[in-house]
């Protein structure tokens, strides 16, 4: 039982991390209909920007995060303005590939600037832990869960009550009708990329803190967040969070129990288990658990 609780908590924390990455995907997809493969690059950039603001510019850690979020958001908006804006109306495949191309560029700019070495984020929580009953809770995991919950609540309030949020929803629903009502689709697009950049920064910081250190590898988390967003449905923030938690739990529980009960599946099966779950769920519900079913017209 202790094992199970411990694994579940780790799964929840991992899920929260996936959810943070997934929310970045979802907001861009919702507003612009683009799956942003460069999201991993933004996570990476966000992490390194925070490092830079904190260490090189000497800003206190808690302040450096919002500064980096703003910077990374600006980069996101700039990318949208310079590259993605030209891709409006192009086939899905072309847009996906443009974002992949961007990922390659961002990745190399980051490693070219900050190098490949593992850097210490300098976060105040480090590897601190405390124990509840028999279960150990690490501080970084609690922060991750809390931040994911906060961001989700923020998204909910933003989309529900703010003018911009409603404008974004309208644009996602029907671009032409939204434009006809005086909503600037351009602003909505740029804003969605900016928000994605900011959320990606949070994900980057959480990935690199808690003793794991900042290294170029953190961008791969975006690949593992794919099952989460697909599972929840590409255009549903709540789905992203739920998908993240399901995938996180699946992964840690598989890691905990598969070697004992299903060893024939091979070493490291837990890292591909999310994809198995994703494929199975998609076969049952082709648009994810909460995704909007696409209406097809001839």
């Amino acid at each position: 039982m202790t094992d199970f609780l411990q694994l579940s908590f780790a799964g929840l924390a991992l899920g929260a991390l996936y959810a943070l990455v997934a929310l970045g995907f979802v907001i861009i997809y919702k507003a612009t209909g683009v799956i942003n493969f460069a999201q991993g690059g933004l996570v990476l950039l966000g992490g390194y920007l925070t490092y830079n603001v904190h260490h090189t510019w000497g800003v206190p850690f808690y302040l450096s995060i919002p500064v980096a979020m703003i910077l990374c958001g600006m980069v996101g908006a700039a990318v949208e303005r310079v590259v993605l804006r030209r891709m409006v109306g192009q086939p899905v495949f072309a847009v996906i590939m443009v974002t992949i191309g961007l990922l390659f560029v961002i990745e190399q700019v980051v490693t070219g600037t900050w190098g490949f070495n593992r850097l210490n984020m300098g976060d105040p929580w480090g590897i601190k832990k405390f124990t509840v009953g028999d279960v150990q809770l690490s501080v970084v995991n609690l922060w991750t869960i809390m931040l994911a919950a906060l961001v989700m609540a923020g998204f909910f309030l933003f989309f529900r009550y703010s003018r911009l949020g409603v404008a974004m929803r309208a644009t996602a629903f029907d671009q032409e009708a939204a434009i006809a009502n005086g909503i600037s689709a351009r602003r909505v697009f740029a804003l969605s990329w900016a928000i994605a950049g900011a959320v990606a920064t949070l994900a980057g910081v959480m990935l690199a803190s808690g003793g794991s250190g900042l290294s170029p590898e953190i961008e791969f988390v975006a690949l593992l967040a794919f099952p989460a967003i697909i599972l929840g449905g590409l255009d549903s923030p709540a789905g992203a969070v739920l998908g993240g938690v399901i995938i996180g739990l699946t992964q840690t529980l598989t890691a905990g129990y598969q070697p004992r009960y299903a060893d024939w599946l091979g070493n490291g099966f837990s890292s591909v288990m999310p994809y198995v779950v994703m494929i199975v769920i998609l076969l049952i519900r082709p648009y994810g658990l909460f995704g909007t079913k696409e209406v097809r017209r001839v």
Partner: peptide, 23 residues
């Protein structure tokens, strides 16, 4: 069963499953 973006991501999963099996 799957179209566009969803198909792309599922085929991406195939690559990871493939590496796992090959390993």
């Amino acid at each position: 069963r799957l179209r566009g973006n969803y198909l792309a991501v599922v085929s991406l999963g195939l690559v990871f499953l493939g590496i796992h099996v090959f390993t």
